[in-house]
């Protein structure tokens, strides 16, 4: 009896694993495939990562953010004619004018880190949208976390741009 139950359980876990594997492989074919041109905006966004996230009311870069910015800096050195604009964003749970200043701090923190990793400062400009350019529209903790970010947008020099 207990064996049978265990067996059913195992099948369930197996199914779950297969499902995850299927998702992962389908994602890989969508994003990492040959249709993405190296050195393009899509390459930066999907293969390198162009967005780092911040804690509530904070503009300090955590280890995950620093790791991604190191990849961004390497990518910019690999494609030396690229220029970028760092967009500083905030969630909707602050006041507009203060968030414009906070977004500037976030964008500046990203720029300063890229420069510390060897990227020429003249290739990196910054802009703050405060709470006025959210990427996620719901009033939930999950969306607010997504909207507290520094986004690296390719402005020139990319392949195919």
């Amino acid at each position: 009896m207990s064996r049978k139950l265990l067996g059913v359980k195992h099948i369930g876990v197996l199914f779950a694993l297969m499902f995850v594997a299927a998702c992962a492989s389908s994602e890989a074919t969508n994003t990492g495939g040959s249709d993405i041109v190296p050195g393009s905006a899509a390459d930066l966004e999907q293969n390198i990562g162009n967005r780092v996230y911040f804690a509530l009311d904070s503009y300090s870069l955590d280890s995950a953010a620093r790791a991604q910015l190191q990849r961004q800096a390497q990518w910019m050195q690999q494609w030396p004619s690229t220029t970028v604009r760092i967009e500083g964003n905030c969630d909707e749970r602050g006041t507009r004018e203060y968030n414009l200043a906070l977004g500037d701090r976030r964008a500046s923190a990203v720029r300063d880190y890229l420069v510390s990793q060897g990227v020429d400062g003249s290739r990196v400009e910054t802009i703050s949208f405060g709470k006025d350019a959210p990427t996620c529209g719901e009033s939930t903790e999950g969306c607010w976390a997504q909207n507290r970010n520094g986004t690296t947008a390719l402005t020139g020099g990319g392949v195919g741009s």
Binding site: E97, L100, A101, D104, R105, S108, A109, D112, S128
Partner: peptide
Amino acid sequence: MSLAKNSNT
């Protein structure tokens, strides 16, 4: 007004 410059406002 405010001016944001050199990481400071």
